[in-house]
Amino acid sequence: MTDNFLDQGKLICVDWGSSNFRAFLLDDKAELVDRIYFDKGMLELKPDEFEPVLFDLLKYWPTTPIILAGMVGSQKGWRNVKYITCPVKMHDLSQNLTHIVNAQARKVAIIAGVDTEASGAQYDVARGEETQVIGAIEMIGQALEKQAVFCLPGTHSKWMKIADKSIVDFSTHMTGELYDLLIKHSILAPQPASAPKIEDDEAFIKGVKCAKADGGLAHHIFSARTNMLNGELQQNEIEPYLSGILIGTEIKEMQRAIENMQHVYLVGTQALNKLFQLALQQFDLPSSLIDGEKAAYTGMSSIAKQANL
Results as ranks from 00 to 15, higher is better:
Tyr60Met: 13
Tyr60Ala: 14
Pro62Thr: 10
Pro62Cys: 13
Thr63Phe: 15
Ile66Ala: 10
Ile67Glu: 03
Leu68Glu: 05
Met71Val: 09
Ser74Thr: 01
Gln75Thr: 08
Lys76Phe: 11
Lys76Met: 11
Gly77His: 02
Gly77Gln: 00
Trp78Gln: 12
Arg79Pro: 00
Val81Ser: 04
Tyr83Lys: 00
Val88Phe: 06
Val88Asp: 04
Lys89Arg: 15
Lys89Ile: 10
Lys89Glu: 14
Leu93Phe: 01
Gln95His: 01
Asn96Thr: 02
Ile100Glu: 07
Asn102Cys: 07
Ala103Trp: 13
Ala103Gly: 11
Gln104Cys: 11
Gln104Asn: 04
Ala105Asn: 15
Arg106Trp: 00
Lys107Thr: 13
Lys107Leu: 11
Val108Phe: 01
Val108Ser: 07
Ala109Thr: 11
Ala109Asp: 08
Ala112His: 08
Gly113His: 03
Glu117His: 13
Ala118Thr: 10
Ala118Gly: 06
Ser119Asp: 13
Ser119Met: 06
Ser119Ala: 11
Ser119Val: 10
Ser119Trp: 05
Gly120Pro: 02
Ala121Gly: 14
Ala121Asn: 13
Gln122Lys: 15
Gln122Trp: 13
Gln122Ile: 13
Asp124Arg: 07
Asp124Ile: 08
Asp124Asn: 03
Arg127Ser: 11
Arg127Cys: 12
Gly128Ala: 07
Glu129Arg: 02
Glu130Ile: 10
Gln132Arg: 10
Gln132Met: 05
Val133Phe: 05
Gly135Pro: 01
Gly135Thr: 08
Ile137Glu: 02
Glu138Asp: 10
Met139Asp: 07
Met139Val: 12
Ile140Met: 00
Gly141Thr: 01
Gly141Lys: 06
Glu145Val: 03
Glu145Trp: 12
Glu145Gln: 12
Gln147Glu: 14
Ala148Ser: 12
Val149Asn: 12
Val149Met: 02
Val149Arg: 06
Val149Ile: 11
Phe150Ala: 06
Cys151His: 10
Leu152Asn: 03
Pro153Ile: 10
Pro153Trp: 01
His156Asp: 09
Lys158Phe: 02
Lys161Glu: 15
Lys161Asp: 12
Asp164Trp: 06
Ser166Gly: 09
Ser166Cys: 13
Val168Arg: 02
Val168Gln: 00
